[in-house]
Structures are given as structure tokens and as C-alpha cells.
Design a protein around this nucleic acid. Sequence first.
DNA 1: GATGTATATAAGATATTCTGATGCGAAACC
DNA 2: GGTTTCGCATCAGAATATCTTATATACATC
Lengths: 312, 312
Amino acid sequence: MRNLTLKQIRYFDALARLGTFSAAAEACAVTQPALSMQIKEMEEGAGSPLLERGPRGVRLTAFGTMVHQRAKAMLAILEDLDGLSRAAGGAPAGKLRLGVIPTIAPYLLPAVITRLAEEFPDLSPILRESMTSRLIDELLDSRIDAAILALPVDEPALTEVALFTERFVLIRPQQEADRPVPNRDKLREMRLLLLEEGHCFRTQALSFCDMPSTQPREMLDGSSLSTLVQMVGVGVGVTLIPEMAVEIETRSAAVSVSRFRDPQPLRSIGMVWRKSSPMEAHLMQIAEVVRACGLRLRQSRGLTTLPGWRRD
Amino acid sequence: MRNLTLKQIRYFDALARLGTFSAAAEACAVTQPALSMQIKEMEEGAGSPLLERGPRGVRLTAFGTMVHQRAKAMLAILEDLDGLSRAAGGAPAGKLRLGVIPTIAPYLLPAVITRLAEEFPDLSPILRESMTSRLIDELLDSRIDAAILALPVDEPALTEVALFTERFVLIRPQQEADRPVPNRDKLREMRLLLLEEGHCFRTQALSFCDMPSTQPREMLDGSSLSTLVQMVGVGVGVTLIPEMAVEIETRSAAVSVSRFRDPQPLRSIGMVWRKSSPMEAHLMQIAEVVRACGLRLRQSRGLTTLPGWRRD
DNA sequence: GATGTATATAAGATATTCTGATGCGAAACC
DNA sequence: GGTTTCGCATCAGAATATCTTATATACATC
């Protein structure tokens, strides 16, 4: 059973359904000996006979029945796969209700909607900005078609596709620019400004510093990355922001931007949708556009040398 | 995607897991060009790229992620299939709790337990006789491991394996032996003795005569085939019994046995067990023994000429 | 016993798939 | 800044697998 081939599975299924080698061979558009040999091969591989030969055809053994169950399951997946690739050809069109988390939306969406309009003129994206937990609810509830957020999501009913990763960078007041970059332990002793409870980015930042999110904090919470950066600018403390936000948020504030030493904190951005979504084939293509935008953003920033291609 | 092969699936899975062609090729014990070509083939078949090539390895496209999901599912089935055939090698041993319906048990079981003891000396069958509905409950409840009964059962949680079919024959008083065999319409006008409510055989017999089981009947109900035949013997009416029962039940009664014209009534005997049963590999082998007994019974009866091998 | 149906086997022809060598490009190294 | 390393693509010949045609064998039916 180790050298099983899909051809054998197909032959076997036809045989199980039609009941004679000859009929199955005809259905598979091969000659009867060809089919016979493949079935024989299969039985040798399995170690037990799959069917009982009689003068008027064949019938499955109990073992054959079990194998046939599996064979049908595999062919069903194959069928699905076939539909998937066929549908991947057609261009997405119609309404697309897309949810995005607040720490991504303002930076990524401009590029995304531009590119989507270029590539899929018949697509009408309807955007919605919410925090992760709410997006998931809306997804499961079919109130949106897909969401762009930080992975992992870990909902069995949802498919998640990783698109790209991005680093977190440290934002300090301009006058601290020359100080060495703190490690995670040092960071814990500094006055760290974070987003309010509920933002996944807050949790991720805290976990980088090894601080439990439940721990009582005397830090200030802001409602947007923009607020946080502005507060750093006036010397209230320091903060972390995702790299994607750097260009926009630091334009109008007297702050310095520093990258951490390895291991650098990062988050994985992905797109998720219902496993059962009929738009899956379109969503894949849309995800590809979103990824391209994300990668482009990551490169077109003059923060340091180009980050280079890496698996992450 | 129409000429997909399992080899390609395996290569693709390794590639998706390991991230580079070279590593995947090594894991699959082939050279890197071999793997590259198969992946290329796959992408051509699908019409869209499965992965994005970068200088330090590859990463899945959204489409690739979807395909990989399916690939993993197929490999899981394959794994399962492998376990199935491996286990099919070992001989069944230990306790086997087997349920059988009353219209089969007395005729088939003697042969079955004998043969099981011969073929699988380490197996200890524990038998239990009940009607179909009860057997199913006990199966679902894990109080028995398998059941021999008339198909179809149609419980999604159960696997059913067809073993053989057997005809129903007409039992009439000895003195009516020379009369022509009634067809189903004529039969309806005769005094037909049947088993009590709850036996699947009763339902099957009624459905052969096109009589709804709910219809009020003035016929007599017996609690066993034996009773029915004895009553026919004293001239109370006629009855149907499964062919398997003929030899034993007609030995001590003054009755005649006749087969119907086509289409002959028949029932399909099968074995069922929980889909999740860990003994599945053993149950297959046991089912095979039961089938052999059934077929042997069907042939060793001198009722008419040998029935011949037929798909039914 | 002759015939029809159905599977098994054998030998040569045909495709498919693999290997080993080579080339090219991008990153990493010194 | 040149050199090395890593990783994928391509190519031609070799090795396998698979198919087809022709033939043999088994069983049941007439």
C-alpha cells in the first residue's frame, strides 16, 4: 500500500462501482489487462485480496469495501481540488466584504484597494475595520467574506492563509535616539505605551516583553498607534509599533525609530475565511494581491537596507 | 489537475513543510530536479502557481495553501489505508461481541463459530441474538463490536459490508405442492403467516407482497420461523422463509418448498460495525469468514440446481 | 460438448520519471 | 568588491512503469 497511485484508486473505484474488469476498463478508457494489472498490483501492495473473482464479475471483499470507502474519499478531495483550480482561473467579481484590524487597515488598505481595482475591475470591496475577536464573529456569522488580521486564529471552521510577516519597531523620543536599543528585559522597566485592551497588537507586544497581559500595569493605554506615537513625541514614554506603520505615523512626530536585535519581535499577517466559502477560489487570488501589497510596503521603506528575502 | 499523481502530492507536501526544493527532495529520497519537475507539472496542471520562489526557499501562494490542505487530507487517508492493510495481516484475537438477528442466527451461526474457531483459535466470540433495532442501539453504544443483519442499515456512524444475498421461498402445506406458484398478487389473497412486529424479515416479506406494514392484517403472527413452518404443516396457511432456514425448518413438517419466479424476493445479509472501531481490520477478516459460510450454506442445499454465481 | 463471457498472462511498444551534469541568480562571507 | 555558498531550472540519456495486442484459461449456459 506504500506505492499506491491515484490511477490505481481510480481504476479500483470504477471496478467497485461497475462490477467487472471489462466494464471498468472501458469506463477508464484503457484495456482490460491494463486495469487487471493495476488491481493486482494494488492487492499485492495491500497484502490481502480486495475482491473475490467470480465467473460473472467481481465483488468486494470486506477489506475491499473498507478500501473503497477511502478511495471514494480521496476521489472526492480530488474533485474538490479540480474545482478549486478551475475556479482559480476566473477573475473575482461582485461584492467582497472584507474586514481588517485597526493596526493594519490605515497602512495596508490604500495600496490594497488600488491594486484590487486595477487587477479586478469588476470587484466591489466593502471594507470594515474591527478588532480580531469581532471580525471572527462576523466571519462565522457570514457578515463578512474574509478578514485580514494577525495569525494564528485557530478556528476550525476557518481557513487561514499566511501572507507576510512584519517586525515591531521601537519608538522613542528623538533625544533618546543615541541610547542603545534595549533588550526585552530592559524594555520591561521602561514606560511602555500600548493600545487598549482588545487589540491583538497589545497582546503581542506584551508577550514579546514576557509580561502577562493580565498583570496590573501602570502604563498608559492609547486608542490608536497614532496617539501612542504622538505621546512618545512629547516624552511620556516609549512604544512599539508594527513596521508597516512607521512611515505614516512618524512623519509628524519628534521620535526615533529603532529595530531590535534578534530575535526580533514580529507578527504574521494573514487572511482568513470560512472553509465553506463559495468564493474560496476568488479569495485566494485576492489574498495574493494583499500579499504583494504587504511585501511591497515592507521593501519600499528606507528604514534600513532592504530586509532581504527570508522565510518567516 | 486532472493528471495529478500521489507522488506529486507527496512531493508537494514535503515541499510545503520543509520550504526548499532540495530539502524536500532529500526527504523524498529523490534528486532535486525530479522534485522540481513534478511540482512544475502540478502547477501546469492546476493553471496557477502553487508557490512563490525566492532566493532562500519557497513559500506557498494562497492557492498553494488551499491545495496543501487537500494534500494533507489525502495523505491522512493514505496513512489510514496503510494501517488498515498492515493490520489486515494479523489474525483476530481476543473477545468479539457479535450480534445476530433471529432469522439468521440459528442457521448461520453453527457454521460460523466452527469456522472462526478453526481460522482464528485465539478469538473468543461472544454471541447475542436480537432484532435489528436493538442491535443497532447496542452497536452505537459499544455494547457489541459488530452485528450480522439484513442491509441496508443506513446509520452514518456505522460501516456496512454486504456479504451475500439469499432468496425467500414459499412454504405451503404438503398437499398444495402441485399447485402453481403464486405471484405476489395472488399471494396477497392467501393466508400469509408472518413473524411478529419488529422482525425485519416481516417487513421485507410484506414489502414483497406490496402490502404496507401498517395495514391492519387478519393474519397470524408467529414468534419464530420454526413456529410458522409448523403451523403451515397443519394447514393454517402459507408462509415465507429465508432460503437459509429451509433445511432445518422443513425437516420435521409436512410442507412443500417452492421458489418464486423472477423477480424473486431476496434480502441482503451484511455485517456492520462502528466506523470508529479499532478492530476494523479484524472485523474485515471475520466478515470474510461469515461470507464464506453464507455462500457455502447457499450451495450445499439440494433444493434446486446450484444457483450459480451472480452479482446480487 | 460448443459457445459466450470474463479474467489472467506474456511480449513488445510507448510513456513517464529519474539521475547526473550544468547554468544562472541572489544572498552571505571575508 | 570579489568570492563562495545556497538554491532552483534545464537538459540529455538511462531506467522504470505502463499500456496494448494477442493468447490462454476458467466457468456457466445452451
